[in-house]
Write a protein that binds this DNA or RNA. Sequence first.
DNA 1: AAGTCGGGGCT
DNA 2: AGCCCAGACTT
Length: 346
Amino acid sequence: MNFSKTITYWYSENKRDFPWRKTKNPYFIWLSEIILQQTQVKQGLPYYEAFVSTFPTVFDLAKAPEQDVLKLWQGLGYYSRARNLHFTAKHIVSELNGVFPNTYSDIIKLKGVGDYTASAIASIAFNEPAAVVDGNVYRILSRFFDINTPINSTKGIKEFKVLASTLIDKEAPAIFNQAIMDFGSRQCKPKNPNCNICPLNNSCLALKKNKIQALPVKLKKVKVTQKYFNFLVCIDSNNNVLFEQRVKKGIWQNLYQFPLIETEKSISVDEFHLLKVKTYLLKDIDFDYSLYNKTDKIHKLSHQHLHTKFWIIETKALPKEAIPFSKLKSYPTPVLISNFINEFNF
DNA sequence: AAGTCGGGGCT
DNA sequence: AGCCCAGACTT
């Protein structure tokens, strides 16, 4: 039995029952694919359920304020996905008459949709034989065919896409694409795959050459930069607090946080004056301050390690843009901030 | 072609 | 600690 037939047969015996596998509605397929970008099913599943429930149609998503979309996305990371999702929903409603595009070439024009996602939607929702190449597919193909081209090089991206395109079952692209990804996540796993029970173990070149652990080949690794964040939790005697939106480009764009001052290194209580709170934030306002966490809270992102301090600043009155404690949890925030809000117990 | 963008899970 | 995850976008 050849590669593709083996994968498809394995899937028929082992497929899992996910909610997005019960529908051909392109809106739901799109939603699931955006949520699952760089995200494991276990983490994305509850978000999919919440989005389908809150926004049953593309019209519901389009008419929602961005803040509501980001709030529902809170905790999932890569927030540009949520912003692009919302932008595209509005685009489909206002420019495409609410009708989801039905070909790969039209789907890939949507913001937030690249080659993988366009292929997934076109194949699953419209049965177009467009091959998906995600992390699972890179791993399976590089191992089975012993391909050493780095999967994140320009050459590798083209090479694996061409190969996947020759392998896809043109009669059943929806099943094949989901099958090969499922096979990758559960059988041909990154670490310690159980090749003894693999239906492809008699023809897998990496297994034959003992190169399972060495494949796929991946270029470079992101170097992690250290950053030092000082959040200023400014509260007044009437239970109000300063809270602001991150409008600049960078991490957590459009999410909310306490006023932030970044420093070159971790500062001590004695060095609080370096933050120049009196100059930049609370002009002519008297306040008392204290440090909430004695040791830096380290929040790890994929490319940054954030060493964070929460400074509690108490004053009689704050600028009028301060919000009441009771409204804090209605804003979309990074996990770091929502964790603090829950812990501090305003 | 290289950097940026989250958070959680696994080893 | 390092790598991975149903990647896409920007520079």
